[in-house]
Design a binder for these strands. Sequence first.
DNA 1: ACGCTGGTACTTGGGCACGA
DNA 2: TCGTGCCCAAGTACCAGCGT
Length: 325
Amino acid sequence: MGNLLQTSKKLTSLNDIFGGTNDEQNVKSVTKVDINKLIAFSKHPFKLYEGARLDDMVRSVKELGVLTPILVRKLDNGNYEILSGHNRWNAAKMVGLSEVPIYLLEDINDEEAMLIVTETNLIQRSFNDLLPSERACVIAQHHEALKCQGKRFDLLEDIKRLLNADEINNSDTFDLIDQKQNSREKVGSVYDLSSGAVARYLRVNVLSDKLKNFLDDAVIGLYVAVSISYLSNDNQEYLAGFIDSGKKVDIEKANKLKELQKAGKLNEINMAKVLDGTYKPHKKKSILKGYKIKSKVMKKYFQEEQSEDEVESIIEKALELYFKQ
DNA sequence: ACGCTGGTACTTGGGCACGA
DNA sequence: TCGTGCCCAAGTACCAGCGT
């Protein structure tokens, strides 16, 4: 990693954890454990493989076993929490293996564990292969890391080497980032997204799990998801219920819900009216902030080549004359 | 034609440093 | 202490491209 992200002091690198260099022959923590002692990461944001992808992995594990050790941290109750390798673990269980190889990482706090979970997933899967909610989680993690300026990118770099990531894909998640960029641009440059797109994914990440599922299943669009991310938890819960019962939310309705939320007028009743298209606001929208003149009126009085300033000046003079009369 | 998506440019608001 | 300017994050408006 470049000099953008300074490393925190608490953790040592994998070198130190494993007591040597990163050469695979020096990794001493690889060991086999009872598969029943492994548990999924408590806040695992990624969905497990299904369909053909799962079938392929099960076939591979059946023929070759689990080749790449599963990355874990030890819990107080003696079990191991998986940080990377949920799909290998899942396939091993389906095949009926009793033991799996693990890398044990020590002194990993929850925040660091979450970062490892998201970033190692990216090492093995292209960003574009992720579901929208998974992308949102990855981006939010990276964004948070940049804001904190103290995350363990050195540790992640070591993990990347251990997993032979360069051979798996060409992810450049940890590449040097231009320090002149703001955090949204920095994150965007890593994942080839604009700052606006990063902002949208950051909004999506605050959606309730149910609404994230609707987004992943394409029941709602990304822009709908962004708008409804401004709804309170209760209102998101109501909305998920409505969508579950078959109600459709397009961008217009989503923006209406957001507007009502901002005005403190959104409740289950108003939400139902908006979704049914029967919501009638009591007051008309104020025109004092600005008003767009329809193009047929503009064409009647102005030419294509006239500048905005010129047009504005003419309209102002015309209004002065009108109100003088 | 329409809706959806992503990008760019812009506005707004908050935090901070600096000088009077 | 106050005013000013700067930077940054968040959000908005608008546009173009694409698929249906």
